[in-house]
Design a protein around this nucleic acid. Sequence first.
DNA 1: TTGATATAGTCATTGTAGCAACTATATTAG
DNA 2: CTAATATAGTTGCTACAATGACTATATCAA
Lengths: 162, 162
Amino acid sequence: MDLRQEVVELIFRVAKIGKLKLNRQLAQKGLTLPQYFVMKMLYKKTYEEKKPISPADLSTLTGISRSTMTGIIDRLEKNCLLDRKQNPQDRRSQNIEFTEKGLNIVQDLSMVADEIRNEPLKALSEEQLLNLRDDLILIENYLKDHEDGDLVYLKSEEPGEH
Amino acid sequence: MDLRQEVVELIFRVAKIGKLKLNRQLAQKGLTLPQYFVMKMLYKKTYEEKKPISPADLSTLTGISRSTMTGIIDRLEKNCLLDRKQNPQDRRSQNIEFTEKGLNIVQDLSMVADEIRNEPLKALSEEQLLNLRDDLILIENYLKDHEDGDLVYLKSEEPGEH
DNA sequence: TTGATATAGTCATTGTAGCAACTATATTAG
DNA sequence: CTAATATAGTTGCTACAATGACTATATCAA
């Protein structure tokens, strides 16, 4: 099989299986992976860097779209893990803050969840990890640099069809 | 930052950005990435290997769950790209077959869609690709070998809560 | 100041995606 | 042969996830 194709499929497959396993683990705590991801980012910014944070900030930081973020925050708020407060400086904007319960959970989890998440990489040496990182960064940069454009191939021949 | 954590996040991020871009490309043809993935697998099995194929087969081959596959086939069938036929040997089972239109589209696309998909790997040398593949295979095998189990950390302290 | 433009959050819509439960059928064990 | 078990497909449910449209604000330019 074509080598590049094999690598692309491997990246997709590893990401998918990894996510599935993490989701199953976190489900025992009543969280999903995206929810945990958001909680962790919120913790990092508001507690380690002491900066108030908005849904839009979280969206940029995590790469999750604004509309998806609305839903994730909805569910976290419904489970009383965080609160939405009005931003007094900008009436369009909100500050997201932990509740007592949410803070406890994220502190509880951050010790072990990342360890579980990173565990599958134990199979690799330091050197392999460094190479792997550099290769992935190359791919990521390619994807970002070619942020759409030049994709002449798939121009639809039948635009009005549906 | 921790190196392993960085690599994990890179894998997730690269997979996510890559999928997003592919989805936007395929949208011009009225398809989604999972839909194209299923069509391609169907083509490979029924046309290159001349084997009839069921939804359950497609599910195993693609790693998409059976219930999700139901929905994907629903939508492809609604768009008249394939048909469900009864399997005469097993009345529980179906054979999935292309329509004329579906066959045309998958043949049309297979030339270029994979090329677009693999393009971001052009930044890497043959040697880098080989290393990358081997590293990813190690990770995948770790994930598969540890198919749940030994994840003592996250045992819920409050199992009745929801 | 006012008009154009940009940003923040939400909502509707469509399409995954997995789990659990269910029906129908097949297979296997006793 | 019958009862237990397994498999195929579907459905209901919850939760992402992106796009596009919309409202409310903020900002910037003329």
